[in-house]
Simulated assay, not measured.
Amino acid sequence: MFDPEKTGRRKALAVHFLTASGAVFAMLALLAAVERHWDEMFLWLVVAFVVDGIDGPLARRYDVKHKAARFDGVLLDLIIDYLTYVFIPAYALYGSGLMDGWSGWLAIILITFASALYFADTRMKTRDNSFHGFPGCWNMAVLVLFAVAPPWWVCLGVVTVLAVAMFLPVKFVHPVRTKRWKGLTLPVAVLWTALAGWAAWHGFEVSGLAVSLLVLASLYLVSAGAVQQVLDRREGVLRRAG
Rank of each mutant, 00 (worst) to 15 (best):
residue 192 W to P: 00
residue 192 W to Q: 09
residue 193 T to K: 09
residue 193 T to G: 13
residue 193 T to F: 09
residue 194 A to G: 05
residue 194 A to P: 02
residue 194 A to E: 02
residue 194 A to F: 11
residue 194 A to N: 07
residue 194 A to T: 08
residue 194 A to H: 08
residue 195 L to A: 06
residue 195 L to T: 00
residue 195 L to C: 04
residue 195 L to F: 01
residue 196 A to Y: 10
residue 196 A to M: 02
residue 196 A to G: 08
residue 197 G to V: 06
residue 198 W to R: 15
residue 198 W to F: 15
residue 198 W to M: 12
residue 199 A to W: 09
residue 199 A to N: 08
residue 200 A to F: 08
residue 200 A to Y: 11
residue 200 A to M: 13
residue 201 W to R: 13
residue 201 W to E: 10
residue 201 W to P: 12
residue 202 H to K: 04
residue 203 G to I: 06
residue 203 G to P: 04
residue 203 G to Q: 08
residue 204 F to V: 00
residue 204 F to W: 12
residue 204 F to D: 02
residue 205 E to F: 05
residue 206 V to G: 03
residue 206 V to N: 04
residue 206 V to T: 07
residue 207 S to T: 09
residue 207 S to Y: 06
residue 207 S to G: 15
residue 209 L to E: 04
residue 209 L to C: 03
residue 209 L to G: 01
residue 209 L to H: 03
residue 210 A to D: 00
residue 210 A to S: 09
residue 211 V to E: 09
residue 211 V to C: 04
residue 212 S to Y: 00
residue 212 S to H: 08
residue 212 S to G: 07
residue 212 S to F: 12
residue 212 S to M: 12
residue 213 L to N: 00
residue 213 L to F: 02
residue 213 L to A: 02
residue 214 L to M: 13
residue 214 L to P: 02
residue 214 L to N: 07
residue 215 V to I: 13
residue 215 V to H: 08
residue 215 V to E: 07
residue 216 L to M: 09
residue 216 L to N: 10
residue 216 L to Y: 07
residue 216 L to T: 06
residue 217 A to D: 07
residue 217 A to T: 06
residue 217 A to V: 04
residue 218 S to W: 13
residue 218 S to E: 07
residue 219 L to I: 15
residue 219 L to F: 14
residue 219 L to S: 11
residue 220 Y to L: 13
residue 221 L to G: 03
residue 221 L to Q: 10
residue 221 L to R: 03
residue 222 V to L: 14
residue 222 V to A: 14
residue 222 V to R: 00
residue 223 S to H: 14
residue 223 S to A: 15
residue 223 S to Y: 03
residue 223 S to M: 13
residue 224 A to V: 14
residue 224 A to T: 05
residue 225 G to I: 10
residue 225 G to Q: 03
residue 225 G to A: 10
residue 226 A to E: 01
residue 226 A to H: 07
residue 226 A to K: 08
residue 227 V to D: 04
residue 228 Q to E: 11
residue 228 Q to C: 02
residue 228 Q to T: 06
residue 229 Q to F: 03
residue 230 V to E: 05
residue 231 L to E: 14
residue 232 D to R: 14
residue 232 D to Q: 13
residue 232 D to H: 13
residue 232 D to P: 05
residue 233 R to E: 09
residue 233 R to H: 13
residue 234 R to G: 12
residue 235 E to D: 15
residue 235 E to P: 04
residue 235 E to R: 15
residue 235 E to Q: 15
